[in-house]
Nucleic acid binder design. Structure first.
Length: 1054
RNA sequence: GGGUCUAUAGCUCAGUGGUAGAGCGCGCGCCUGAUAAGCGCGAGGUCGGAAGUUCGAUUCUUCCUAGACCCA
């Protein structure tokens, strides 16, 4: 027999369930339950690895709720799922934390501290918050196999990454280049484009207009705009658009050259005069005096043509500093311009520019502006607000810097990558061709190398003698080539140890490793392979677990993990059919605060997930996300919204509580009490359940959690507000009639199915309900159950349609009662349904009568409305006035009188009107005709004593007349309700029998005597007696029964 | 400057080429043998603005405005 226990409050409930899961090792059993199916039914999930060196925050929660939902669902469906966890452990984020901890501020200081000690610290730091995560995930019901989680810093993982790099190298796609790259001067390393993408921020920079004196013209200056004053010393050229028109503008005694189109924008209200125009092409070759002359190369300081010059802002003349801009660099290469760089790798000016030597470039802006102003070279200055990239971790502004770096030639495989992406199912779909697709279209080579310490070492060795380069792809290869093979056998694949391994070159020389580590996004992007240490181990596992069916991460990973997975996979597995390495990707939105701002630590508006979970519980938080909006929408996270959305869960608890209460009292045994025939309501709710199952299943298959939760909510509403509401009395019966068994068995089955349907969404509540309903023959946890399958045999759409109509009739009827201000407890004689649909079967009518509390229900054809409706004439005053002129007021009067006439007379007139489409009137001897439609029309009003309600396409009329008999019944029903309230107030159990004593107004007394049996049945009163003495009673109360006085006393029978 | 997305009730959000929806909040009721629960009704909307396609546009198209994210 099931337990039918009470459900404690959500927090206690979740604590109990957590304990149960742990004791019974349910998560483990869940993940292994489909081992037998793994050959044919697999659902492959990849974990996007978090970095464990920080606490989990609310933003992490969003992808994680979905990463839990879908695998749970698939597990219940019998799919084999490996939910292998993973940790991202390398890279700048970790190094920065450690630097901070150790108080180090530059690479020099790290070197001084010792690379070995530093790297050891990094490795340690990675695990600093691991326990936080391991506590948080289970609390939320997020189940992972953390025991076998992949860790990107292990030798095995790195070996797989090396294998990949070697394959890429062998394809000739790994090369060393000299390019202008976004560079973080604080971290001392260039960043890849997807890292840069993480760090754009709105910032205010200086905006200055400079005068560059033309060498061969009197008092003439090129007007140049820049937002980076610190690059001015490195200027070697000016660029113009050859096809643009430039103007020579006289301002005071000076002449400025700038784009014609931009004159007013730049000069504003200043008084000026255009003294000539010239095409850009004609400016090319002109010489000018640079503000700072750091080069004496003959080709420097002249005007060149460039196609990237725009007329959107500035002056149409662009200052060129090849050391600090990609486009500048290219122009410099093409034009043979000198390369001037007075800035060192820490972003500080060197002695080559004494004015600001030793200063960080951004700090030098002010010095330079001041100097230029002092020398009369500044036309005007201001500030400029724009988006500028900052280091995504340390927030230092990035500098565009010409540097040596290793690249992966991703552009060589761009078409393949795009083709692969086209086959991926993105959720939402528009990401594929939109945001992500666009990124692929404008893809650049992957700047792979980092001048740092803690990361996967770039496995390239270069011969000191012949400069030959070799890429090592495995430990075995390292051992084979190493000078010290013993050392190579055990060396850890990290700096500084790996740097000590020297290789023998084929020329006989010694090879040293280049000192770079690689971008940690390459690490995590390789998890599809490296998590299995493939190809060195786990060949079968890899074959089985590639590609993933499903991944989910935040949309900030578009250019991060989504990209690195796709690129590495496409490059490595050219022979595998697309798509890989993931088939479905769910992009999740950002977490915003109450005011719609992105949650971030710097804004201080981050919600601690513990604060939320400890108050509302994990189920409520999960449901909030699933039901609130599509995964990819940004979410405002206001804790009070979580309370609002959990209403559905409360209803589920209520329905369960109702069932458990009576199932417990009556010892309902699902094994013993078998159903012979299902009652109408039972067949209905089972039919609706089949519908709900198919809807929820479809929605989950299509990765639409909102639709799934809506289907659940609809079903729960139907279950609670129609099925249970109308079935309550069936659960109270004293003997096991077939109808009672049918009710119990049905609700039992429905709740059991509902628990399973809820399991992936709210695993705690689902488990609690299941535990109270399960028999010994059933699996020990709801999470080890099979996902329900819709049974078409139980579906009856005809029945559903009928029931829907019945519900609509009830709604309309209740609306009418509301209008008439007659409460439902007061029985009424008649309700009339006006509908084009045929009358419902008696069973439905019974339900409707019960809900509307009417004695009789009849159906009226809409063609014959006059039994209950009376017609009224409405008229169009303006039309009457126009046609009848002075007769119009009289016509109105007649019509008003007609509206007061006898019902039969009016019906007769209406029938005439309908036949002839006009109404004939005689006014002062004159016969006039009023056409229907333009002048008059007929409206129907309920006849006296009737009130109308409507819903959808039908109407319901209520006869509101209450005769003595009805009034008596109303009194009795009111009396019964008051007694029930007293039972509760007295603290009796619902099944306690009572003795009931009363004294009351004569009218109430008469009614009670007449309906004594009914009262006793309803209140479980073994006796009902008039009694003026209440000495013995346990509970007594004065009552107001519809305005009449009564007093009752109760005694509980034991 | 470019791209993508978003704009629907006071709030949070569904949805649709044919009379606009839910939850919460608000007002008024109701019901109660689920009992500190539950239900109904009502108020509240130019479906961001403009134009176009269409018999009909909140829905499709274009433009504009605002916001978010991304890119430059």
């Amino acid at each position: 027999m099931p337990k039918y226990g009470k459900l404690p409050d959500p927090l206690t409930l979740e604590a109990e369930i957590l304990q149960f899961w742990e004791q019974a090792t349910i998560p483990k059993k869940s993940l292994s339950r489909n081992e037998k199916n793994r050959a044919k039914k697999r659902f492959v999930f990849y974990e996007g690895p978090p970095t464990a060196n920080d606490k989990p925050h609310f933003g992490h929660l969003i992808p994680r709720v979905y990463k839990d939902l879908f695998p749970r669902y698939k597990l219940m469906q019998g799919y084999h799922v490996i939910k292998k966890g993973g940790w991202d452990t390398h890279g700048l984020p970790v190094e920065l934390k450690v630097e901070k901890e150790l108080g180090l501020n530059s690479k020099r200081e790290i070197e001084a501290f010792g690379v070995e000690a530093f790297v050891n610290k990094c490795k340690e730091n990675v695990w600093k918050f691991k326990s936080e995560w391991e506590r948080f995930d289970p609390r939320m019901g997020f189940w992972y196999d953390q025991e076998h989680a992949y860790i990107t810093y292990t030798n095995e993982y790195i070996e797989s990454v090396w294998w990949a790099l070697k394959k890429i190298w062998e394809k000739g796609l790994l090369y060393k280049g000299h390019k202008v790259l976004p560079y973080c001067p604080r971290c001392g390393t260039p960043l890849s484009s997807h890292e840069v993408a993480q760090g754009y921020e709105t910032t205010q920079d200086p905006s200055i207009f400079l005068k560059f004196k033309a060498r061969d013209l009197q008092d003439t200056h090129f007007l140049v705009w820049t937002t980076t004053p610190w690059t001015v010393p490195s200027n070697v050229a000016l660029a113009v658009g050859p096809s643009y028109t430039y103007a020579k503008v006289q301002v005071g005694s000076e002449i400025f050259i700038l784009a014609h189109e931009l004159i007013s924008q730049v000069l504003g209200t200043e008084h000026y005069e255009i003294v000539g125009t010239v095409r850009g092409a004609d400016l090319v070759g002109m010489r000018y005096e640079p503000p700072y002359r750091l080069s004496d190369a003959p080709g420097a300081y002249r005007v060149v043509a460039a196609d990237f010059v725009s007329l959107e802002e500035g002056t149409g003349i662009v200052h060129i500093a090849p050391a600090f801009g990609e486009e500048d660099y290219q122009v410099g290469q093409a034009e043979g311009l000198p390369f001037v760089n007075p800035v060192d790798l820490e972003g500080k000016f060197t002695m080559a520019f004494p004015l600001a030597a030793g200063q960080f470039v951004k700090d030098a802006d002010a010095v330079i502006i001041h100097d230029l102003k002092h020398r009369g070279l500044l036309y005007k200055s201001g500030t400029y607000k724009h988006e500028y990239p900052f280091c995504w971790r340390c927030k230092t502004p990035l500098l565009y810097y010409a540097l040596d770096s290793y690249f992966i030639r991703t552009t060589a495989k761009q078409n393949e990558i795009i083709e692969n992406n086209k086959q991926i199912h993105w959720h939402p779909e528009h990401f594929r061709d939109g945001r992500f697709g666009n990124f692929l279209e404008t893809m650049k080579d992957w700047a792979l190398s980092r001048d740092r310490y803690w990361g996967t070492p770039l496995p390239l060795w270069v011969c000191e003698q012949c400069q030959r380069e070799h890429c090592v792809g495995s430990r075995q290869e390292l051992i084979d080539l190493a000078l010290d093979k013993e050392k190579a056998r055990t060396v850890e694949f990290h700096r500084p140890w790996i740097d000590e391994i020297l290789l023998r070159c084929s020329c006989g020389g010694t090879m040293r490793r280049v000192l770079y580590v690689i971008d940690c996004w390459f690490d995590s992007g390789m998890m599809h392979t490296a998590q299995w240490h493939y190809p060195f181990e786990n060949q079968e596992l890899f074959a089985e677990q590639f590609p993933a069916d499903f991944i989910a991460e935040g949309l900030d990973q578009t250019r991060g993990w989504f990209y690195s997975l796709l690129v590495t996979s496409t490059l490595l597995y050219e022979e595998k059919p697309y798509p890989h390495p993931y088939r479905h990707v769910v992009v999740t939105g950002m977490g915003l605060d109450e005011s719609g701002k992105k949650m971030s630590k710097s804004l201080g508006n981050v919600l601690d997930p513990w604060d939320v979970v400890n108050v509302y519980g994990a189920d409520a938080v999960r449901w909030f996300f699933y039901s609130g909006s599509a995964p990819w929408r940004d979410r405002r996270l206001d804790p009070k919204d979580i309370v609002e959305t959990r209403g559905v869960l409360e209803t589920v608890r209520n329905v369960y509580s109702f069932f458990a209460l009576y199932a417990g009292i009556d010892h309902f045994d699902p094994a013993r009490h078998t159903v012979s025939e299902r009652a109408l309501l039972d067949r209905w709710i089972l039919s609706r359940l089949q519908y709900a199952i198919s809807e929820i299943t479809r929605a989950l298959d299509e990765y639409e959690p909102v639709a799934a939760t809506q289907a659940i909510a609809t079903f729960v509403d139907e279950l609670s507000n129609w099925y249970v509401r109308n079935s309550r009395a069936r659960f109270w019966g004293s003997s096991w009639t077939p109808d009672k068994i049918s009710a119990f068995a049905t609700l039992y089955e429905v709740l059991l199915a509902l628990a399973k349907l809820l399991a992936p969404f709210v695993p705690f509540l689902a488990e609690a309900i299941y535990q109270n309903l399960k028999t010994d023959q059933m699996p020990e946890s709801v999470h080890l159950c099979d996902w329900p399958q819709a049974n078409d045999k139980l579906r009856d759409e005809g029945l559903e349609a009928q029931m829907k109509l019945a519900r609509q009739i009830v709604t309309a009827g209740l609306q009418a009662r509301n209008k008439a201000q007659i409460k439902v407890r007061q029985p009424l004689a008649l309700a009339v349904v006006l509908s084009t649909r045929p009358p419902l079967d008696p069973e439905y009518q019974q339900l409707i009568r019960q809900e509307l509390n009417v004695k009789q229900l009849t159906w009226l054809s809409q063609d014959q409305p006059f039994a209950f409706y009376t017609p009224q004439f409405e008229y169009e005053k303006s039309a009457l006035g126009k046609d009848l002129r002075s007769l119009a007021p009289k016509a109105v009067h007649i019509l008003e009188e007609l509206n007061k006439a006898e019902h039969e007379k009016r019906v007769q007139l209406v029938q005439e009107l309908k036949a002839q489409h006009k109404l004939r009137l005689t006014i002062e001897g004159q016969e006039i005709e009023l056409p229907e439609g333009t002048h008059i029309r007929v409206v129907l009003q309920p006849r006296e004593g009737y009130v109308e309600g409507s819903e959808a396409d039908m109407k319901v009329l209520l006869d509101t007349r209450i005769d003595d008999a009805l009034r008596q019944e109303g009194l009795v029903r009111e009396f019964v309700r008051l007694v029930q309230e007293c039972r509760k107030e007295a603290g009796f159990e619902v099944s306690d029998r009572i003795e009931l004593y009363y004294e009351a107004d004569p009218e109430v007394q008469t009614a009670l005597e007449k309906f004594a049996q009914h009262v006793q049945e309803e209140t479980l009163a073994v006796t009902l007696q008039r009694n003026s003495s209440f000495e013995r009673v346990e509970f007594t109360k004065e009552l107001d029964v519809n305005g009449r006085r009564a007093k009752i006393g109760l005694i509980r029978k034991r």
